[in-house]
């Protein structure tokens, strides 16, 4: 550890207060590749929790399988690392068992839109009060760069050596179409904006999804000649448009752009609240009958 000034002062903790408070330092540094965007997004989540002042005991982090899912091991909350694609299913159980808990699902694009696609749309339809943060790197990084449902058409992967034929999923749009009451998109580059979006998503009562564009320099970047991690972050900086700007642009102009910001927010009854109301109503009816 070095200090910026001439004389080196010795400190026992060699990390920022935020990391010291919300991460498990014995597991750091993470196994993620150099320049991986997941670390930036994990910090965004910790910062959002810090800004909201949530207690570590009443916050649950649930993750599935994949690069992104490692986050549950690094974050010092009540965490659970579940089976592939089923993070939302586990989170639904936790939320219903104790609705006062703040349940945050940290997941990847393949985990949530391919293997767990059904769980995503039905949790969104139910409007259950989970916050889902998607670390969307457009590829299956952990298993070696196979194309995922969010790999753009024509992009390359180890299983798409001549270019991907399928059209890509817009995860935020998919969840919003399925009934999610809060859908937003952030990016690894736009740290403060993404932190705010996650923060608002946690505060929102209902199913909130924040689709965060991550970067995968090792597989997606290398297969598609996107350059280094720095080049990929610069791409995000130069090709992002806000929702307000996007409203003024034509479809042609929006091609290849990343629309970031709050895409959609409505309010309708949250599932655990509606469930509680149902139980109360039935109890009252039974008492009246007796």
């Amino acid at each position: 550890m070095t200090v910026d000034t001439g004389d080196v002062s010795v400190k026992t903790k060699n990390m920022s207060n935020l990391i010291y408070k919300y991460m498990r330092p014995e597991h750091l540094p993470q196994i993620w590749c150099p320049g991986c965007g997941n670390g930036i997004i994990m910090r965004d989540i910790a910062q959002a929790i810090e800004n909201l002042g949530l207690s570590r005991n009443s916050t649950v982090i649930v993750s599935g399988i994949g690069c992104s899912a490692r986050a549950a091991g690094y974050m010092d909350f009540n965490t659970i690392h579940t089976t592939h694609g089923r993070a939302i299913a586990f989170a639904t159980g936790i939320k219903l068992a104790n609705p006062s808990l703040e349940v945050i699902v940290v997941t990847g694009d393949g985990d949530i839109s391919a293997i767990g696609g059904n769980h995503l749309i039905h949790a969104a339809r139910r409007n259950i009060g989970l916050t889902v943060v998607v670390m969307n790197n457009n590829i299956y990084g952990m298993t070696g760069g196979q194309y995922s449902p969010t790999t753009p058409t024509g992009a390359f992967g180890t299983t798409a050596p001549y270019g991907n034929l399928d059209r890509s999923f817009d995860i935020a749009g998919l969840a919003y179409g399925a009934g999610a009451s809060y859908a937003a998109r952030g990016s690894a580059y736009h740290v403060q904006q993404t932190t705010t979006l996650i923060q608002e998503g946690i505060k929102h009562r209902g199913f909130s999804i924040i689709d965060v564009a991550s970067i995968c320099p090792t597989y997606y970047g290398r297969k598609n000649k996107k350059g280094s991690a720095v080049d990929m972050l610069k791409w995000q900086r130069d090709n992002s448009v806000t929702v307000d700007q996007a409203a003024k642009m034509s479809q042609e102009e929006l091609k290849g752009k990343l629309v970031i910001g709050l895409l959609h927010q409505v309010n309708y009854p949250e599932f655990t609240y509606a469930y509680d109301q149902l139980i109360r109503r039935l109890f009252e009816e039974r008492e009246e009958n007796e």
Binding site: T5, N17, P29, G39, R43, Y189
Partner: peptide
């Protein structure tokens, strides 16, 4: 740098006491 470091290896810390420890003096 702190905002975008994926590995939390660089950060700004508040240093109590010694007023000479100021990054600009480097």
């Amino acid at each position: 740098c702190e905002l975008r470091c994926p590995d939390y290896a660089i950060y700004i810390d508040e240093n109590e006491g010694d007023t000479d420890q100021w990054a600009k003096s480097y």
